[in-house]
Structures are given as C-alpha cells and as structure tokens.
Simulated scan of single mutants.
Amino acid sequence: MERRHDIDWLRVIAIILVLYFHTAMIFTAEWDWHIKNDELSYLWLEFNFWLSRFRMPLLFFISGYGTYLALRKRSPWKYLKERNNRLMVPLIFAMIVIVPPQVFFERLFNGATMSYASFWPTIFEMTPYPEGNLSWHHMWFVLYLFIYSAVLLPLFLWLRKDKVKNYLNRLIEKHSWISYVLLIVPTVLIYVTFTVYTNRTNALIGDWGWMTYWGSFFLAGYFAGITPAMWKRIESDTRNLVGLALHSTIILNYFRWNRVELEGISETLYLILLAVSGWLWLLSMLSLGKRYLNKPHPILAYANRAIYPFYILHQTIIIIIGYYIVTLVDEGILAKYLFVSTISFILSVAGYEYFIRPFRIMRFLFGVKELPKKEKQKDFTKLEERAEFKAA
C-alpha cells in the first residue's frame, strides 16, 4: 500500500491551525481562556467557531487512520508499547516540564506574585488544575489518543479481519452512500443524545460526553483505513461536500447571528446540523486533500517529524508571549494576533530544530519516531553537507 501523503499534509495543516486557533483564543469574545486581552473581538469568535467545526475531528480522524496503518505492521503488544512511548512518555514529560509555565503565567495574569522557582514544586502536591497547579492542558488530546488506542484495540483487531474488511468494502462498492451513513450517523446520535448535555472539561473524569464524541472520529478514521472503497466516493464528491459545508455554516450562522430562540424539534434539528456541519467540513478537507495533496515534498518529510513536538510546545509559547503582549503592549488586536502567532510559530519550529531534533533523549521525550538506519545516514549526510557549506 503506497503512502498517503495527503493524510500527512492534513495532519501538519491541522496542527498548524491549532496554533492559530489558540492564539485567537486570547482575543475571542465570549469564550474563556488562560489569558485574555482587554479588548476582545467577535470576528475572532467567528473564526474560531468555524475552525471548531472540524479542527479536533480532523485530528482524531487522522489519528484513527494512523492506527490502522500502525496495526498493519505490528502485533497488538508491539503496537501498545509504541503507543506508550509516543503518547504517555511525552504526556508525563509535558506535565512536569512543558505545561507548568502555562499555569504559572496564568496565575501571574490573575494577580499572583511568585517566582517560577517557588511555583514549580507545587505541581508535585498533585492537586489538579484549576484548584491546584498540576495539569495536562492541551496535552489532553494525547491522553485521549492513548485511551482510544488501548480501549478500542479489540474492536480494531476484529475489524481488520479479512472477512470483515471484504464485507464492508463490497457493501460500500455496491451502495457507496452507505459510507456516509456509517461515518456520520453514529457521531450525530452521540452528539445529540449525550454530548450536548455534558460540559466539556478535557479532564477525562467527568468528560464522558465529549470523550465519546471525539472517539467516534477516531474510530471513523480507522474504519476509513479498512475501506478503501469509501475514499473513491469521498474524492468524487469534492464539489458537493464543499458546497454543503459552506451552506451548513451559513444556516448555522443565520440562527446564531439572529439569536433565534430554539426549542423542541427546532433545537434538535439545529444540534443535528452542528454535528453534520463538522462532518461536512472534515469530509471536504479529506476530499480536497486526496485530490490535490497526495504528493511528497521535502518540506513534508521534515514536517512529519517536527509536527508532534511543534504541537507539544506551541501552547506554552503562545501563553508566555501572549502574557507579555496583552499586559505590556498597547496595540490593536490584529497587530497583537499577528505578532503572537508569528513568533510562536517560529519559536515552536526553532525549539524542535535546535533542542529536540539533534538529541536522542529529547526525541524520545517528545515522541519523535527514530528514522530507519538508511534514512538516518541520509539525514546525517545532509547535516555534514550543511556544516561544510557553513565552514566554506
């Protein structure tokens, strides 16, 4: 099976969008976050509302598809061992080293006066955030991935059996529209009957509604892996999917902007549209990606290894830079946003290039997969050539 470069591109794009989403949270009206600018914007709220339709669903879907690829080549035990090394090790490291500065600067923003040296030991009091200072913050995504990977493993092993895969592919080849039913309906049912009645906490305990919702996209990504017939339908429907996604957002915003009172059946239909809109945007991204992004590029080869450390680092950098910008700089929202997002992007890439990529222990702590020996040699040769060029 040839490598799907479009999936790699979409993973990179989705995580970069996370950086711009989190930067916008500093300036977004109505939505709370760790630090906030004095002046807030409803336009940034609209930007983040649109991204929120597909940002996390796309990441969970791609992760589910990656699970399918991983299980094709590994035994269940080897798969779980790799998941532990790539997910739980970076999570624990981040909770001790990467996340605490976020909590510290949030405390400073809210008026606390302390040094980081006196703050850091308090995380070992094991009092969960927000009452205490121990938190995983944005690394909740990594924890949820590990849980899905372990809990759903028996189902994945059953789905990958030839008789199951063959049946599903024959069914979709005969009735291709069924692929949309199998993907969308479970998510809509979960969202309308369960998720909307729970608070999203990202704290695992008490977050069952949203954890189940995100898990449906993870499972859908694995399902997409075992049903190549589904991709043919998605790729052929690009125009329709993009059009429906745009119209779903227009309809949602009509109700939101006009503050239409909804109750009973109208409220249920609105909630269904919210869930369906997320899928339409997700399927549009997959369709466009399959059509236009399924090609290799040197930038993609680098980004594939850099993007996970980039994700781990980005929010800490945003909060630190954002803290100084919103408290010390008297500028407009757009100037602040562009400055924080650009500097955070540059520092996240630089953090990987200079402090993670060159050191094996750092690559391990940040979950970077080691290159095969041949690729390592090529990578080392490039470094030598770069050094010789600089020396010249």
Rank of each mutant, 00 (worst) to 15 (best):
L288A: 14
L288M: 14
G289H: 01
G289Y: 00
G289L: 09
K290R: 15
R291N: 14
R291I: 14
L293Q: 03
N294W: 01
N294I: 03
N294G: 01
K295I: 10
K295V: 08
K295S: 14
P296E: 03
H297G: 06
P298N: 00
I299M: 09
L300V: 03
L300I: 05
L300Q: 02
A301K: 15
A301I: 11
A301W: 10
Y302S: 11
A303K: 02
A303H: 02
N304H: 10
N304Y: 10
R305C: 01
R305N: 07
A306Q: 12
I307R: 04
Y308W: 04
Y308E: 05
P309H: 08
P309Q: 06
P309R: 02
Y311W: 07
Y311V: 05
Y311F: 15
I312M: 12
L313Q: 06
L313F: 08
H314Q: 15
H314M: 15
H314V: 12
H314W: 08
Q315W: 09
Q315M: 14
T316G: 13
I317C: 08
I317P: 01
I317N: 00
I318M: 06
I319K: 09
I320R: 14
I320F: 09
I321H: 05
I321E: 06
G322W: 11
G322T: 04
G322S: 02
Y323M: 06
Y323Q: 06
I325K: 06
I325V: 13
V326N: 01
V326W: 05
V326C: 07
T327F: 02
L328Q: 11
V329A: 11
V329D: 00
G332M: 02
L334D: 05
K336A: 05
Y337M: 09
Y337W: 09
F339T: 12
V340W: 09
V340A: 08
S341C: 01
S341W: 04
T342S: 12
T342R: 02
I343L: 15
I343G: 11
I343C: 14
I343A: 15
S344Q: 10
S344E: 08
F345Q: 12
F345W: 15
I346G: 03
I346E: 06
L347T: 04
S348G: 04
